[in-house]
Each structure stands twice: as C-alpha cells, then as structure tokens.
Design a protein around this nucleic acid. Sequence first.
DNA 1: TGTTAATTGACAGTATACTTACGATCCAGG
DNA 2: CCTGGATCGTAAGTATACTGTCAATTAACA
Lengths: 170, 170
Amino acid sequence: MPSKPTPPITIDAVYAAPGYLFRRMQQIAVSIFMEECKAFDLTPVQYAALIAIHTHPGIDATRLSAVIAFDRSTLGSVIERLEAKDYIERKPAPEDKRIKLLYLTKSGAAILREIIPAVERAQARMLEPLKPADRKALMGLLAQLVDLNNEASRVPLRAEDALEHLGKGG
Amino acid sequence: MPSKPTPPITIDAVYAAPGYLFRRMQQIAVSIFMEECKAFDLTPVQYAALIAIHTHPGIDATRLSAVIAFDRSTLGSVIERLEAKDYIERKPAPEDKRIKLLYLTKSGAAILREIIPAVERAQARMLEPLKPADRKALMGLLAQLVDLNNEASRVPLRAEDALEHLGKGG
DNA sequence: TGTTAATTGACAGTATACTTACGATCCAGG
DNA sequence: CCTGGATCGTAAGTATACTGTCAATTAACA
C-alpha cells in the first residue's frame, strides 16, 4: 500500500476543513452584522455585552466574561469603550473593593431598544441563503456542538454559575 | 395584539443567535488548533497561508489574500512573521516592480509536512462530540452557507480567479 | 491570627481582522 | 509620450482575542 502515508498538501483540504469553514462563517457573520448595524456604532461583542448587562444589572467584569464566554482581558477594553460612549457605568462594590459593578445607562438601554431590529435582520440574513429546514438543522447541530465543546475553549460559557452573586442562583 | 412590538431583551436570545454560535465555535476551533499544534509555533492563519503558498508557489500577497479569503492588510503582517521564522521568502517580480512573489523555504516545506498530522487531529477533535452522520450534515450545510454567502464578506474567496497570473488559469 | 490561596481588575505583548490612506508602479487613452 | 485610473504593498488606527504577569484585596486555613 504505497498510498496513505502523505495526505495531499493542497489548499483544497483547507477549504473543506471545519476550522476554515468556522473562521470564514464568522468573518461573514461579523460583516453582515456591521453592515446592518452601521448606524449604531456597536460591534457584535459590544452588543452582546450590553445585552448581558441589561439582563444582569450589577454584574462584575469577571462574571460578565463567563456569561458571554469572552476573554476577561479583552473584555476590559470592551467595557472601557462602552463606558466612553456612555452606554454603561462602573460603580465600586461596597462589600468588595476589588470589584466594579456594571450598569446600563439610559443611553445604553435606549440604544439597545433601537438596535434590536437591525440585529434581528442581521441574524436572519446570515442564514437566508439556506432553506428554512436547513437553517433549523444547521443551528441545531451547531448549538449542540458548541455546547458539547464548551470546555475546549479557554473561556467556557458559565451562564448559570455566574449569577449566584446576584442572589438569583440556586 | 399587544404582544409583538418588543422582543425580549435577554441574553438567552443571544445564545441562540447564529452570529453568537459562529463566534463561539470559531473560538473553540482556534483553541483546539493551538492546543494540538502548540509544538509548532504556527497559528491557523499562518498554516493556511503556508498551504496556499505551497499549492501556488510564486503567488503574490494580493492573490494569496483572495485564495484564502484573508484581509490583504492583515496578510502583510502574517507574511512578515512567516518570513521572520524563515518559512517563506519574498522575491521581487521582474516584470512588475510592485509585486513580491512568495515561496516556501525548505524549513517551511518541512514544518508543513510535520504539522499536518496535528492539524488533522485538531480538525477531527472539533467535530468529535457529534455523531458521524451529524458531522457530515453540519459540514455540508456550513460549506453550502459559506459558499452562498461568499459575496457578503469583505474579502470574498476567489480560489480560481486568483491563479490566472501563474499561467494556469483558463 | 497570621500566612497562604485565590480572586479581581489592569497591563504588556502577540496575532487576527477591517478601514482608510498613501506612494510606487503599471496600464489605457488620447 | 503623458496623464488618469487601477493595482500593489504598506502603514496608521481601531477592535477582538489570548497569554502572561502584577498589585490589591479577599478568603481559607493552619
């Protein structure tokens, strides 16, 4: 059996690789999001952070990073930018001097309400080329895969654990 | 009908959004790639660039960016790093003083051969949690979606067009 | 209680991505 | 031949991501 040792080293293997397709799809998704939301000066990451703070007012940066599965280091600058735009504010926590609690400002709540239709349009456009049944199938499989691979990423999603500090945890 | 105007503004809507899942899956994919390939000091992007140069020796940076659908500006620094590691070399094109042609060095060809098993392991690990039939279904749908959305991204893939300069185009 | 563990936010450094702009160069038309 | 438009590489500026480190602070434990 002379053929098996060396797989063909060509670009076509890359095109079909899961990692390449995931990267490509992410690029496309960001591009569509930015296009639909260009009137709002909000990136996908900033949008997710705002939503999370809206859902969990008074959350701190570390827990926020767990709730949206973003890197904590990166989140620092994201928060800075949101604060500079006056969409959120940081308040020191009385019981723990290390922590700064995050809250939406009125501007932040307002832009969130306004941007939602654009975001929904963007999300719809990403899947638009597929037939409705295929969209469902793809999202189902992807949600499954992301969930099952949760621990493989450096910043696993901890949607539940992160909320105990707010007194809502079980 | 009082209920329809305002969709619920919660983090759960984000978790189910295509854009969020694509971003999350990309994070996971990069994480797995880096873990499997940490012995080689190559990022996914650098790997794809090396493969593309290996497949199309003498390609220039602009065409390379089209072949792997990477941003041209970003690619400049990627090429710099690959050159610094002595994996590729840039040679001026005699017929066009603007262009620099890209070639793999011996080190570049060697590391490519060595890293391939690790890359294959990484690609397999990304899909491992799914049943084989589901892996196929997911990859099929995703490949379809990426292809149909090709023009939506800032840097559409131009696998074929990019090669005409090499005298192989039709 | 006092030392150690762990946690939090911040920073430095590297690597993608994208936008815009600019000089050098090539090409097409006149 | 020469001017305008296109293309090439490059750079500056912004925004994610991740690694590693650090000081301050808190918690845990002997």
